[in-house]
Design a binder for these strands. Structure first.
Lengths: 242, 242
DNA sequence: CGCGATATTGATATAGATCAACTAATGTGG
DNA sequence: CCACATTAGTTGATCTATATCAATATCGCG
């Protein structure tokens, strides 16, 4: 049950019987390595399998007419990156690795009978896709209402919270090998502006990105400037625990 | 089967047997009237029912610390506005009427056995929530990469396409009783700037908003400036038709 | 060691925000 | 049905955050 462990940790809301978890794990492929920047699938593609990210960072994005890229999601280990392709069948965006990754995949054909057999598992998978939708909404909010520093802080606070949920943080720091260009493409900014804002935040002792690692030096300030409230991540809150 | 008709028209991807559609319709409440600006539910609320919009415009939004509002979705008739509350249980945003509305509701308790009985119906409902996610992604794109005119044009093109799917357009025009302030809150702009951009678009013969109605006078130009491509709306494309 | 990718810095331009009136509708109660 | 209040839309002046254009510096790597 190695591959689905993180998925369950970060996205479980209800107690799923071990048998059902095992059944999901059983249909996942063995881990597959993929290189940084590899494109997994493209907008318009018909998809017949979905990918669970086990290690590394992936993203989903759309390019505009002039090739300017906008990320619509950043994925961390434990995310079922393109599970939405199961009901949708066709993707409306591209999916790619941001770093070297390890993934596991599942054929949609085997998912259908599994869900019919275990409706609870189906609900959990549905839930998982809606969590992505909740993150999308938060991104809409931040793009619409926050300034550059707020957006960057928001993305980093969000990433920290999500990595923490799967045990991949060390206090207030975490591995983050994304470039300033990647950050810019996520936050709707230019990389030049990201650079200046990061420099300012560093100067002010708020955060530091060094050796492909983020250090949130003043979480309180970062949370305030980004109006970050992790509620929308629905990280296990005991709501459904007995 | 009056209430679910539009829902099915705009969001069906697979042929659902009439019996199953009827079963869904049977559990929907009778139509309920709601006044413009009424708030249906608030961020953090536990929800135990979902709302199908039958007539009017609704929206979902988040307020920032200073009360600046950001819409994260605009809903048209046929939309299952807050179905995501079914798997999520708790909302991460507010839901409100933009205009006078007619809605129908369904208790989540009755949805569960229905879906277990009809997995196909469950998939259709799942699909429907992912369509909202696809629209969220498109909004992220437009907020991140388009200028004010592009964003406004995008919203209006999107609304036109969605209304057309449920037969509520008259050629290139449609009812649109939203204020410039609403538009601003959807597009991450100030109402003043929306006003100026609309004035320019009107002067250039691109579009007109008059008597609570939108006229897309030059669709081609609007589509171009907003890079609008209705693919992401997954409007019935025969993919699954025999 | 040298080359491409990434990060940094400076100068300038501009889209959109903000502040401040004012006008035109829409609605309400006397 | 008018007087007044409220909401929505319009216009102008100014300010500012971020983009753009142009170099240069630095890092990681074959």
């Amino acid at each position: 049950m190695a591959t689905t462990t993180d998925f369950l940790r970060s996205r479980r809301r209800v107690e799923i019987p071990a048998e059902q978890l095992q059944a999901l794990d059983d249909v996942m492929s063995d881990p597959i390595r993929m290189s940084a920047r590899k494109v997994l699938s493209r907008r318009g593609d018909l998809v017949n399998k979905s990918t669970l990210l086990v290690e590394g960072y992936m993203c989903r994005y759309m390019d505009d007419r002039n090739g300017h890229r906008q990320l619509v999601a950043v994925h961390v280990p434990g995310d079922f990156v393109d599970l939405h392709g199961y009901p949708l069948q066709r993707l409306d965006h591209d999916v790619a690795m941001l770093t070297d990754c390890v993934v596991a995949q599942v054929e949609h054909d085997v998912l259908t009978p599994l869900i019919e057999r275990y409706p609870l598992l189906g609900r959990m998978l549905w839930f998982s896709t809606l969590l992505d939708a909740a993150m999308h909404r938060e991104w809409i909010f931040q793009l619409g209402r926050l300034d550059a520093a707020g957006r960057i802080a928001h993305l980093l606070c969000e990433t920290h919270a999500r990595l923490a949920a799967v045990g991949r943080t060390d206090g207030d720091s975490f591995d983050f090998p994304l470039t300033q260009q990647d950050l810019a493409e996520a936050c709707g900014l230019t990389s030049i502006h990201v650079n200046r804002v990061l420099a300012r935040l560093r100067r002010e002792g708020r955060l530091e990105i060094r050796d492909r690692r983020v250090y949130l030096l003043d979480r309180r300030a970062l949370v305030a400037m980004s109006e970050f409230d992790p509620e929308y991540l629905y990280i296990d809150d005991g709501l459904l625990t007995p």
